[in-house]
């Protein structure tokens, strides 16, 4: 049994490594600039979606304000690059500030609502995100309101190819980190909370503290994704705080598969590419301008019928066939 499992894990790792190498080599084989930019976006949103997956998929917390962490990161780096020098030290300072603010905000929001029913967290994050949106609109001296502002980035991020690789490596690092995190004893407790909160509580775990930890880690990572996002555009405006960003994360994790991490990456790829192709199709028929409607419907159907998303559903099917193989071999052993 254990041997069978280790073979599967090994094979999975080989596939992942292979894909990672392919992605690293991709810009050297294909010099389409728009493709490279699109892939960069996919990596950034994959980080964002994975951070969301930690909450939704691993801990069972629904947040409707994930955009606020994304936006905090995006604005922090933008403001630092604009007000001070676009150099690496200031960039790092922006990263530190982002980590601090996102950690504090997620801690406070978590503390306020995570001891209550799941509705409260969803509602409060939604309200908080709209508060940040208003703040970004009103604090004109710093944010230039709705229009946003452009800024220069440190030397390191100016080359598209370098930035592509930075984002790719960031995504892989975040994936490995979260993979390690969710498989750690702490991660197991989070999954126990997702499965049955009362039982975890009665086993002696202080559920609220674990939930807050998940919420803070998730918030900080989302802030990091926001930093990369605004650096990639060299521009930031209030759209980073809107519901659309949260909806992106939701669609990506739900359709890709909750609680799997890799599902979030696949979801990010799917949504970003669909966005790219479908907006081009808008020239053919205007309905494609409203492409999000298709994803909304798919999303509802997935929540209803395939709550584990693409990756989860595929895994279920695989698991069943694996079980069958094991059962067969055991039967043969018993017979032989």
């Amino acid at each position: 049994m254990r041997k069978v499992k280790s073979i599967f894990v090994q094979r999975k790792n080989i596939v992942y490594t292979f894909i990672a190498i392919l992605l690293i080599l991709f810009p050297f084989m294909n010099d389409s600039r728009s493709m490279m930019i699109l892939f960069t976006q996919v990596f950034i949103f994959a980080i964002f979606a994975m951070s969301y997956d930690l909450l939704l998929g691993f801990t069972g917390i629904v947040s409707f304000g994930h955009a606020m962490f994304f936006g905090i990161g995006a604005y922090a780096v933008g403001i630092f690059m604009k007000q001070f020098e676009p150099t690496l030290p200031y960039f790092l300072l922006a990263v530190v500030i982002t980590i601090l603010i996102t950690a504090i905000v997620s801690y406070v929001v978590g503390l306020l609502t995570l001891r209550l029913k799941s509705h409260f967290y969803a509602m409060l994050t939604l309200a908080f995100a709209s508060l940040f949106l208003v703040l970004a609109e009103k604090w004109r001296t710093l944010t230039h309101g709705n229009d946003g502002f452009t800024f220069r980035t440190p030397e390191l991020f100016r080359d598209r190819l370098d930035f592509y690789l930075i984002c790719l490596v960031s995504m892989i690092v975040v994936f490995l980190l979260l993979n390690r995190f969710t498989n750690s004893p702490l991660g197991k407790v989070l999954q126990a909370i997702r499965e049955n909160e009362q039982r975890t509580e009665s086993l002696g775990y202080s559920v609220i503290q674990y939930k807050i930890i998940a919420s803070v880690v998730s918030g900080v990572l989302a802030g990091f994704a926001g930093i990369l996002y605004s650096v990639s555009l060299r521009f930031v405006n209030t759209s980073v705080f809107t519901m659309d960003i949260t909806l992106d994360a939701l669609l990506m994790t739900i359709i890709g598969g909750v609680g799997t991490l890799i599902g979030a990456i696949i979801g990010a790829g799917l949504i970003e590419f669909a966005h790219h192709w479908l907006t081009e199709l808008a020239k053919v028929h205007w309905i494609f301008e409203r492409w999000i409607i298709f994803f909304g419907i798919i999303y509802i159907l997935v929540v209803m019928f395939f709550p584990r998303g693409i990756v989860g559903t595929v895994r279920n099917i695989k698991m069943k066939s694996k079980k069958r193989v094991i059962e067969k071999s055991e039967q043969q052993k018993a017979a032989g």
Partner: peptide
Amino acid sequence: HVQQILITLGLMLVLSEL
């Protein structure tokens, strides 16, 4: 609960796009 929250937000998205 989780499914309810998720699904009604999805409906919100579809309704406002429609």
